[in-house]
Amino acid sequence: MTSTAPVVRVTALEKRFGAVRALRGLDAAFPRGAVGLLGPNGAGKSTLLKVLLGLLEPDRGDAEVLGLRVAADPMAVRRAVGYMPEVDAYVSGLTGAASVRLAGILCGLPGRAAQQRAHEILYYVGLGEARYRRVEEYSTGMRQRLRFAQALVHDPELIFLDEPTNGLDPDGRDEMLALVDDLARHHGKSIVLCSHLLHDVEAVCEHVVVLREGTVALSGSVDDVRKLERGTFHVRVSGDEARFRAAAEAAGMHFAAQDGETLVVRVPDGAGAREIFRAAHAAGCVVRRLATVEQSLEGVFLRAVEGAAEARA
């Protein structure tokens, strides 16, 4: 596999649970580096991760991780990647060091190397002083770090992080993101960060994949995706709002969301605020407030979610 090849590639991936289609012919490629996997509940993120780890067999389609076909050798895939689960997970009765060592051994590290790596990684994630304490005595944040250490111990090229900052206080969250950022930027790790916290994804990821109802709603670099937010305005008008909407839509504008009396209006490429004033004038309305939406991932994500809601309706 060349260094530019995607670390994850899925082709026409389908997965059904009875009548529910969790993945609908999903096609996606995750480039190297830190990639944010976003999507509302039920979008198919967890199903995709399970398929990539070989825990679920897809009904159709193919998945490759680090050049390895998941269907052909799921154990090789699990050995090659690190996985940090979202929910609490520990082996009862073990110390932090023993837990990380166990994770290393399960992934194929020799016993002594696993022992040494366990200590190193626990220092790296900030649990060096607590490594001989039983995991049951750890706080939520410490257990979060422990799971991170377990995902890292065998030095995988690709790490799946499922909601790594869940339940952390602001300092803990910043430290966790700093670790993820350090791994991605300075140690060449590829990371798939599955999160519903857009701030986390914006903070550390270079690419983003947004899932919606089992398909890719949006995919690209964070910078490119942010650009999609250009041409979006918060608008408040006085007068007949329905007429304003009709006039604006006739001019090619879209209404993304509504927050009280404030409308979120997206104008076509090449257009600007002037078109909004024209539409208001044509509808006999007065624009009372007009502000550009700050370029963030949030708007894009919300649009993807709303697109799903509209499709359902």
């Binding site: 154990m75 194929g108 590290l109 190397a113 790296y124 900030g126 065998h154 030095d155 670790l179 791994l183």
Partner: peptide, 17 residues
């Protein structure tokens, strides 16, 4: 910060099934 004052070190050996 930083919490990772020891730094991250690569594993130089090979993983064995």
């Amino acid at each position: 910060m930083p919490v990772f004052d020891q730094g991250y070190r690569r594993f130089e050996g090979t993983l064995r099934p």
